[in-house]
Amino acid sequence: MLTSGNSSSHPVSFILLGLPGLEKSQFWVAFPFCAMYVVAIVGNITVLHIIRTDHTMHEPMYLFVAMLAVTDLVLSTSTQPKMLAILWFHAHEIEYHACLMQMFFIHAFSSVESGVLMAMALDRYVAICFPLHHSRILTPSVVGKLGAVVMMRGLLWVSPFCFMVSRMPFCPNQIIPHSYCEHMAVLKLVCADTRVNRAYGLFVAFSVVGFDIIVISVSYVMILRTVLGLPSSEAQLKAFGTCASHICVILALYIPALFTFLTHRFGHQVPRVAHIMLANLYLLVPPMLNPIIYGVRTKQIRDRVIQGCCGKESQVKA
């Protein structure tokens, strides 16, 4: 059923298919997705709690990790509960405005996550290349302003997606062969010329991700030059070690993100099952891995987690 307005018509709801091609095994596939979602929620909340309660961690690196944790919570929660409802309870219907909201949160906070990673690269650049001036350059106020700019960029760049889609007429077909409302998947249901929408999508992708990757790459080139100029191999390894977590997080986000983006537009030969599975993992694996990576590789966070798990037991033994 379509609802008509002055300038557009849209369906009351859409039908999300979930995982097309895996209908017989969707119920069981949902269990690992649920496990990853639980790990993402528990891990990111734990990281946020540790950073909030430990005042020694109110430094740029940890503040950026906290921003990343908040972004990961929003990203995973915007898609996974609905996806699990589809796979377990066959709740395929999603209301039109709920679909637009989901689309907004997915793309806005994907942009925010990319921006936070860029800010973290700048933090590593200043910390390694200008260690004596790090605390003076990256004050809490500067970190807060960087976070606000990244957030505003995500909101302002992505908002036109929803506005332009909401002003366009939809075809009678209401089926989205996906488990969430992705911009390109929704756009394929529009009965009008979508070249402007597609062009704007490309502009946002390249202006956000392209800009962030350039800044990250330049930062690491400068870091590499500085590290290779250090007098001892021990100092070089220590400097590289401070960047290892960030590099792992970058690869976990950008590789599946770029694959998903390019497949939607150019990868017509890629099997739909592979595309949709990777699209789901793209929004779930980074939020799950990020707290694990920083928890394992960051000594202060790791020690606080161990203390929280074993502290009471140690006190009883003492």
Rank of each mutant, 00 (worst) to 15 (best):
S4E: 08
L16F: 11
L16D: 10
K24Q: 08
S25I: 15
S25E: 13
F27T: 14
W28F: 13
V29F: 11
P32Y: 08
I41T: 01
V42N: 00
V42A: 09
L48P: 02
R52S: 14
P60W: 06
P60L: 07
M61W: 14
M61R: 14
V65Y: 12
D72F: 01
T79Y: 02
P81C: 00
I86M: 00
W88Q: 00
H90N: 15
H90A: 13
A91C: 13
H92G: 11
E93K: 14
Y96W: 15
Y96P: 02
A98Y: 14
A98C: 15
Q102A: 10
A108N: 09
F130R: 07
L138V: 05
V165S: 10
F170Q: 12
C171D: 08
Q174V: 06
H178C: 09
S179Y: 04
A185M: 03
R195L: 14
V196L: 08
F206D: 01
S217L: 04
L224C: 12
T226Y: 12
V227T: 07
S232R: 03
A235Y: 05
Q236V: 01
L237D: 08
A239T: 01
C243R: 03
S245F: 09
C248I: 07
A252G: 08
I255D: 12
P256Y: 06
F259C: 11
L262K: 06
H268Q: 03
L278Q: 07
L284W: 05
P286Q: 11
P286W: 06
M288E: 00
N290A: 05
P291F: 00
P291V: 04
G295S: 02
V296W: 13
T298A: 07
D303S: 06
V305E: 10
C310R: 10
